[in-house]
Amino acid sequence: MAKEFKRSYKFAFYTSGFITLFMVGLILLYEVIYLRSFHWQPLLFFGICCSVFSFLIIQLRIEHFIYKRVKAVYDNVSLLESSNLQEKQVTTDMATLTKEIEKFAKGKKLEIESLKVRENYRKEFMGNIAHELKTPLFTVQGYVLTLIDGAIKDKNVRDKYLERASKGVDRLIYIVKDLDMINKLETGDLHLDKEKYNIVELIESVFDMLEMKAAKKNISLTFDMDYNDKILVFSDKERIQQVLTNLIVNSIKYGKNDGTTEVSIENLIKNKIIIRITDNGEGIEQKNIPRLFERFYRVDKSGSRKEGGSGLGLSIVKHILEAHNEKTYVESDFGVGSEFSFTLEKLKKNT
């Protein structure tokens, strides 16, 4: 039965017992010394009444005391809403209270750790975006200042510098447009215009568009097999084209000379297909894979910027596919190659 007692009940029980013994002892001494008599029945009745009364008073006061203190703690740390503490005596079991405090402490620890991670991410992001914008800005500024200092009088120099400054401005616009798109995707402001189309034809059109870029490194863009039949999907065609473009551009950018970028389309489940973009390029180290889809995150901190781009391509891919409620996957062997894949909703031919 002792195990069933709450600790506060034990405290009240033992305390009331000590008080009762003390009071009964005083009365007993008084009767024996002064009255020189002893009546055990009234003394027993007094002891029982004193014990019960003491137990109730002590227990009620403990509950009231702890209720006030615990409620103050809850209110101060916002552990629970005030509505969760009803106008009744809360438990005075210290084990329960300890568990609640430990739960609160763990939650706050996780929250603090999460805030630290976000703060580090924010600092890194701000540093990356400052670097990405600084490079073309300083380039444009350098050419413009050179022209102002007198180079504008030389027609050949003027045309060359204006063309380079224009490329720097185009890069700035490219970065800002990509940032704006990610912001719209994250806030849900970007409307998806879903339609039915043949994904094979879309991939072929992306191949045609990137053919010259791939030819510079003698990289072949190919399917894993001949897809003679239509594969109909239902999604935003323009956005999925952007996904394919970004992924294939990446495979070319980090691919080896005389390499291959291969696209395959497989049935995943009844109404889903998975599209795989595989290359035999330099590959990605496992430590970098979890951060690939972060804004401005680059695996090669030095060399990748030579390839151009906004550093937002994979982040855009992730957000576009999430807006479609689709999944993205990455597999890579460093030094061997990489495979990026994503799912799409498939339609029947007669739909």
Score class of each variant (00 low, 15 high):
Glu124Cys: 00
Glu211Gly: 01
Leu43Ala: 07
Val243Gln: 08
Ser315Leu: 07
Asn257Lys: 14
His324Thr: 05
Val157Pro: 07
Arg164Gln: 13
Tyr143Thr: 12
Gln89Tyr: 14
Ser302Ile: 15
Glu238Ile: 10
Asn257Met: 13
Gln141Thr: 15
Glu186Ser: 10
Thr328Asn: 11
Leu43Val: 10
Ala105Phe: 14
Leu147Arg: 10
Lys103Cys: 06
Phe5Tyr: 12
Ile252His: 07
Asp93Ser: 14
Glu132Tyr: 15
Asn246Ser: 14
Ser332Ala: 04
Thr328Asp: 05
Asn350Leu: 09
Lys106Val: 13
Asp149Arg: 14
Asn280Val: 01
Thr135Val: 11
Asn246Asp: 15
Asp180Gly: 06
Gly313Arg: 04
Asn198Val: 04
Glu63Asp: 02
Ser37Cys: 00
Leu56Cys: 04
Gly168Asp: 02
Asp229Ser: 08
Met23Ala: 02
Ser114Val: 07
Phe293Asn: 01
Ile199Asp: 11
Tyr143Cys: 09
Asp226Asn: 05
Ser310Asp: 09
Ser220His: 08
Leu60Arg: 10
Ile265Ser: 04
Asp300Leu: 03
Leu190Met: 12
Phe340Lys: 01
Ile175Arg: 09
Ser304Val: 02
Val243Met: 11
Asp75Leu: 09
Tyr34Ser: 03
His319Gly: 00
Thr261Phe: 04
Tyr297Ser: 06
Leu147Phe: 05
Leu185Tyr: 12
Leu344Asn: 02
Arg118Ser: 12
Ile19Asp: 00
Glu266Met: 12
Ser315Gln: 08
Gly107Gln: 13
Phe38Val: 02
Tyr254Phe: 14
Gly168Ser: 09
Leu244Gln: 09
Asn198Tyr: 07
Leu35Ser: 04
Asp258Thr: 05
Gln242Asn: 15
Ile148Val: 14
Lys217Thr: 00
Asn325His: 11
Val299Gln: 03
Lys3Cys: 03
Phe18Arg: 00
Asp300Glu: 08
Asp258Glu: 14
Ser235Val: 07
Gly335Thr: 12
Glu186Pro: 05
Asn271Gly: 03
Gly142Arg: 14
Tyr174Phe: 14
Ala12Asn: 07
Gln286Asn: 10
Phe45Arg: 06
Gly188Arg: 10
Ile199Thr: 08
Thr343Gly: 11
Glu345Asp: 15
Gln86Met: 13
Arg276Lys: 11
Leu312His: 07
